[in-house]
Design a binder for these strands. Structure first.
Lengths: 206, 206
DNA sequence: GCGCAATGTTAACCCTGTTAACTTTGCCGG
DNA sequence: CCGGCAAAGTTAACAGGGTTAACATTGCGC
């Protein structure tokens, strides 16, 4: 259904090369004309596979969310604290490994919600991993009884903000401050952690 | 020195109109040609006042950082907890009030550090307010002995991430969840807060 | 084998940012 | 008071971008 007719499946090749350009030079450097030339094809040919330039970018971002989801799912199990910190580090690590892709995924305004259903679905699926981990941490009793929405928003905001600041050069680079990401993740954990029931008499945990 | 010659001070008028367009339609919609036409001037005239388009955007972003700094400085004094939460809310509120400006300020890659010294300085000045508040909270004994760099990074990451997610529609809008920003700020505070010495002496953190 | 739909091409339109060369304006020193 | 000089603006043009309409080609299914 989406396979080779004349030149081989152009859509997949275009997306592949576009991802390479995006990764190395950022989305602003991604030109349909240059891309078509690189693929040995005329520019309007791309319009048979993507409605417009934003549609191509949306496809790249969708793929990015799916890869982000896989990265988060790959975090090994264990103690809730380790899982939560592991997910935070995996999230931040993904952004640091693919800064331009991450910027596109959260570019805001460029790929508005509602216009690219697959993109929205992929984003939600990635978010769900984070939410599930938070919910599990809460079920296990490790996290306090803060509403799940609030917990998840705080966790997401922290890792997303850290990722964004890091890849934009507003924070010391990871090789210079290797423990920073872990430290800030731990800070939020210790804030959301329920007080130890043995030492403290507020035993109203659920 | 930068005043009226022919048309009145074009630079200031251009910046003013550009800010309006940015605020309403985002930076992608800001065209030098359209801007010049709106000002009753030809396009290259703008190049007498801005080296190029990015230079105009940098001027807008610089002004944004200065306004953000003022917003943070306007937070009233009081208990360290109230100051810290107040700054967080002011930061988030600024982003929500000027989403397109905020996106430009933290657009990443478009306005790379080092190319616009005034912009870098304004950004640092705004950041310094946040850092000072954190340091003051630590000096007062309200915050724990986490390294200041880590504390500030966590606070900045949280509010920046929340702001970004909020203005991109990834979180419930403020009128729908009015307490969310305060709640997540409090979460991080409670994590960074030093254990109360009177009630609890679990000084063995790991 | 014919036709149809998918795919790709050609030519063109309109919008960008940007620069070079030229013209106008107002101030400043002799 | 006036000549020149620098600032400010204009005209014309270039290069490149996304996008579309009209046309050509290919290959599969009836």
């Amino acid at each position: 259904m989406a396979n080779a007719y004349h030149h081989g499946d152009l859509r997949q090749q275009a997306q592949h090369h576009a991802l390479a350009v995006l990764h190395e030079h950022g989305d602003a450097a991604l030109s349909l004309r240059a891309l078509a030339k690189q693929l040995g094809v005329t520019t309007p040919a791309l319009y048979r596979h993507f409605r417009n330039r934003d549609s191509l970018l949306a496809a790249l971002a969708t793929d990015g969310f799916q890869r982000l989801r896989q990265a988060l799912l790959a975090v090994p199990g264990g103690h809730p604290r380790d899982i939560l910190i592991g997910i935070g580090l995996a999230y931040i690590g993904f952004a640091q490994a693919h800064p331009n892709l991450y910027r596109l995924m959260f570019g805001g305004q460029r790929l508005p919600a509602g216009q690219h259903p697959e993109l929205d679905a992929a984003g939600l699926a990635a978010f769900a991993v984070l939410e599930d981990a938070t919910a599990a941490g809460q079920r296990s009793g490790y996290l306090g009884d803060t509403p799940l929405n609030t917990l998840t928003a705080a966790a997401w905001a922290l890792v997303h903000g850290f990722a964004q600041l890091s890849i934009d050069g507003h924070l010391p680079p990871p090789e210079q401050a290797p423990h920073l990401a872990r430290a800030i993740s731990a800070l939020l954990i210790d804030g959301t952690r329920a007080p130890a029931p043995t030492q403290n008499n507020n035993s109203n945990n659920l």
